Simulated scan of single mutants.
Amino acid sequence: MDAMVRIGLVELALGAMLGWAVVVSVTRPDACRRVGIVEPRRLLQAHLDFVLMGLILVAVGLAAPDLPDWLVAVLVFGTWVNPALFLPMAWGPDVVRHPVFRVVSGLSFVATSGGLVLAAILG
Rank of each mutant, 00 (worst) to 15 (best):
P88M: 03
V95K: 07
M4V: 11
L62R: 14
H98L: 10
P29Y: 08
G15L: 00
L122V: 14
D30A: 15
V24G: 01
A119K: 05
D94I: 09
V35A: 02
R6G: 08
L67S: 05
W80T: 11
T27R: 15
H98N: 15
M17P: 00
A119L: 06
V72Q: 13
F77E: 09
L62G: 07
R33I: 06
V35Y: 10
L71G: 02
V51C: 13
V117I: 15
G19N: 01
V74D: 04
A119F: 00
L43G: 05
W70S: 11
L122H: 05
E11W: 09
M17W: 09
P88I: 02
P68I: 06
A59T: 13
G15R: 00
V72I: 15
R34C: 03
V35F: 10
A120K: 05
V81K: 02
S108N: 09
L43H: 01
V95P: 00
D49W: 08
V23F: 13
L43S: 07
A63S: 12
F101R: 02
R97V: 07
P65E: 07
L14P: 00
L48I: 13
P68M: 06
V26Y: 11
M1P: 13
M4C: 04
T27D: 11
G36Q: 05
A21L: 14
A111T: 04
V81R: 04
R97F: 09
W70M: 08
V38S: 14
G92K: 03
L44Y: 09
V74M: 09
M89I: 14
V95L: 11
E39W: 11
L12Q: 08
V81E: 02
H98D: 14
C32Q: 12
A90G: 02
A16N: 04
R102M: 09
V74T: 11
W80P: 00
L43Q: 04
G106D: 05
G92M: 05
C32F: 09
F86K: 00
V103C: 08
I121V: 15
L9Y: 12
V100D: 01
S108C: 15
W70C: 07
A73M: 10
H47D: 04
L85R: 10
G78I: 05
P65W: 07
L118M: 13
G54S: 08
M53K: 11
R28D: 15
A84T: 10
A84F: 15
P83Y: 07
G15A: 03
I56N: 02
V58Y: 01
V96S: 12
A111Q: 03
